[in-house]
């Protein structure tokens, strides 16, 4: 039997990796993946808690979070696609340089 704390530790590590990725990486796709990772880390926390407390709330929350994450990726990538069509690059630094 794996203790519930183990899940929390794993999800905290995933969250931190996500934050670092979102802040430091300059490739837009990787930034989006990092943000998805943060959200999924929270999902892991919610599911672990839900099963530990024998309640169904956490699982319900996870469905909402998954929907939100999908919507966010859709909006973000749509905006990103428009930028790519205009500038022909996926590096965030170059968008800043070419601004104006």
């Amino acid at each position: 039997m794996i203790p519930v704390q183990a899940y929390f530790v794993v999800s905290a590590i995933l969250f931190i990796i996500g934050v670092i990725g979102a802040i430091t990486r300059r490739n837009a796709i990787v930034v989006f993946m990092s943000i998805e990772m943060m959200l999924n880390a929270v999902n892991l926390t919610l599911i672990a808690t839900s099963s530990y407390l024998h309640s169904i709330d956490g699982v319900m929350f996870v469905f909402f979070v998954m929907t939100v994450a999908a919507a966010e990726a859709a909006v973000g990538l749509a905006i990103f696609l428009m930028m790519y069509r205009k500038k022909d690059t996926i590096k965030l630094d170059e968008f800043n340089l070419l601004k104006g």
Binding site: A22, I35, M38, L39, V42, E72, V75, G76, I79
Partner: peptide
């Protein structure tokens, strides 16, 4: 999008 998503997370 990026900052808002990080904040919401």
């Amino acid at each position: 999008v990026i900052l808002g998503s990080v904040g919401a997370s």
